[in-house]
């Protein structure tokens, strides 16, 4: 029997707000559905650092659509990282597969960019694997272009 998928809600039905402790299970479930890995400890730590208390430069937002959480975005303003003047960094964005193609990701990105702008930031950056075609295409569709940085890595081998 095939799983009955909910019709993706229209863009108008999406509400973006700050994460609440009660949203964490839904966030963990979205991440697990996308990455096939449940990471409750990781998410509890992310919530502690980005989603609770007064975190003026940090954002952990969720999108409500239909009857639940459809996606989330996390980021922060960082000063002089990699020699760059103050800019916003998006380090996680995800939309539940059944809620895609309804503008949820765009609304989340718009909301976090509005938050960055409110802090006087005029540039937003992100970093992702070059074989992550889906999310790369999403960011490109939002107008993002290659940044003037090249990520590098070094294999350290065994200690």
């Amino acid at each position: 029997m095939s799983e009955r998928r909910k019709t993706p809600p229209g863009d108008a039905g999406v509400r973006v707000r700050n994460v609440q402790a009660g949203d964490l299970e839904a966030v963990i479930a979205i991440d697990a559905e996308v990455t096939r890995l449940r990471k409750p400890d990781y998410w509890a730590e992310i919530h502690r650092r980005y989603g609770s208390g007064r975190r003026q430069q940090r954002f952990f937002l969720v999108a409500e659509a239909g009857d639940g959480i459809a996606g989330y975005v996390i980021g922060e303003v960082r000063d002089w990282e990699f020699g760059s003047p103050r800019c916003g960094w998006v380090f996680a964005i995800s939309v539940r597969p059944g809620a895609r193609l309804a503008g949820v990701g765009s609304r989340l990105l718009e909301a976090i960019c509005a938050g960055f702008r409110g802090l006087g930031v005029t540039k937003v950056r992100t970093l992702l694997a070059r074989d992550n075609h889906l999310v790369l295409s999403f960011f490109r569709s939002q107008g993002m272009m290659a940044a003037p940085f090249i990520p590098l890595e070094l294999d350290l081998g065994q200690a």
């Binding site: 070059r130 074989d131 075609h133 790369l136 295409s137 960011f139 490109r140 569709s141 290659a146």
Partner: peptide, 8 residues
């Protein structure tokens, strides 16, 4: 390739 693949 990654750049061209990411642009629709």
């Amino acid at each position: 390739r990654a750049t061209l693949r990411s642009i629709s």
